[in-house]
Design a protein around this nucleic acid. Structure first.
Lengths: 196, 196
DNA sequence: ACCTGAACACCGTTCAAGT
DNA sequence: ACCTGAACACCGTTCAAGT
């Protein structure tokens, strides 16, 4: 990669980050290019599709997220780890509005730039679920796909402004569906932090 | 309404129904107009926005759906009525792919053509929930908004092809979150009919 | 190598002109 | 009254021409 290309690349990423934070996930590629004072074709050269752009934009945060799964697995009992993971996922969804919808439709499409990241999240989720199931604290009649489905559905929901204020409570509700021991008050309080 | 206008109106509705069934919710208005052998401006005159078109397209089915809430309320015990309502909603979502997302974002916007229909569904849901709560078969730490949120989230999810095969099971999972008595095997079997 | 203006085929909105 | 072609301001994609 040439020096000017490298500069353009990181500049575009920085601008995209700002403009997405400002105007949401569905800004046009043209707008981003304009804001970066760069030809639209230049943006498309670095990020051939909108998904490719978001993949680059989210890689760091998504890597950190899946790494949190490892930490939780090591430091917490399986049921607590599972619930904390679920909460952190929702927090991620809230701070990256619109991304969950992208991931949910990309996660079975190997051609998508987001496929690998989705697979990583899916794998981490399935692992934490299995741990809790083995311990008897998560219901055994669901699999990793079901769990990822619940994560996606709730992540999508809390992205909608009318539901954001109840996000934490909704997490608490869903948690009571997959945990066999109903979460206690302490957990409920931690969930409440997600309300917006 | 003049005779030719009336003819155009129903013709457009019929064409829209077919083309949506064929190509999904996100066909362009232009495509629909083309298929109807009518100027785009004519389509826009009858249905000034995409939401207005879908409102007209769904009114009959949505009316039937909310009426089902009344029937269920009269004929079934509150907890069964609540669960059946939830199941019928998901079945509706499955047969009108993409509509749930439209409704979820329209339900707090009084300017939307779909607002009234959303309000009707919301009200019916809240009523059935209250009945079950009064009877002690639904958890009392959730309100109508929460329930409508769960309905929306799951309806959106089962619209995604990868999750459709587990739709019934996912309904069963969520149901165990809002019903205090875990649903029995019989209910589980009825939910399984939603798998695609 | 890398950038970019311009052309292309789309989209929904608007409106003056036609019947 | 109702219809409609055309103009408009957008979108993402593609590519030949420039540095």
């Amino acid at each position: 990669m040439r020096a000017d290309a490298k500069k353009n690349y990181s500049h575009l990423l920085a601008v995209a980050h700002d403009v997405v934070a400002e105007h949401g996930t569905d800004v046009s590629m043209r707008d981003i290019a304009r804001r970066a004072d760069v030809g639209l074709a230049t943006l498309l050269r670095h990020f051939p599709t909108r998904e490719a752009l978001f993949e680059a934009l989210l890689r760091t945060n998504l890597d950190a997220l899946t790494q949190r799964a490892d930490e939780l697995e090591a430091s917490s009992p399986p049921d607590e780890a599972l619930l904390s993971w679920f909460r952190e996922w929702i927090a991620f969804a809230q701070s990256h509005r619109g991304v969950v919808a992208l991931m949910a439709s990309a996660h079975t499409n190997p051609d998508s730039a987001l496929y690998a990241s989705c697979a990583a999240v899916h794998a981490a989720s399935a692992r934490l679920l299995l741990n809790a199931q083995a311990e008897g604290t998560a219901r055994t009649d669901m699999n990793g796909d079901d769990f990822f489905g619940l994560m996606s559905a709730l992540g999508w929901l809390v992205d909608l402004p009318p539901f954001a204020p109840r996000a934490g409570h909704l997490v608490h509700l869903i948690a009571s569906a997959f945990l066999t021991n109903r979460p206690n008050n302490d957990v409920e309080k931690r969930c409440a932090q997600l309300d917006r």
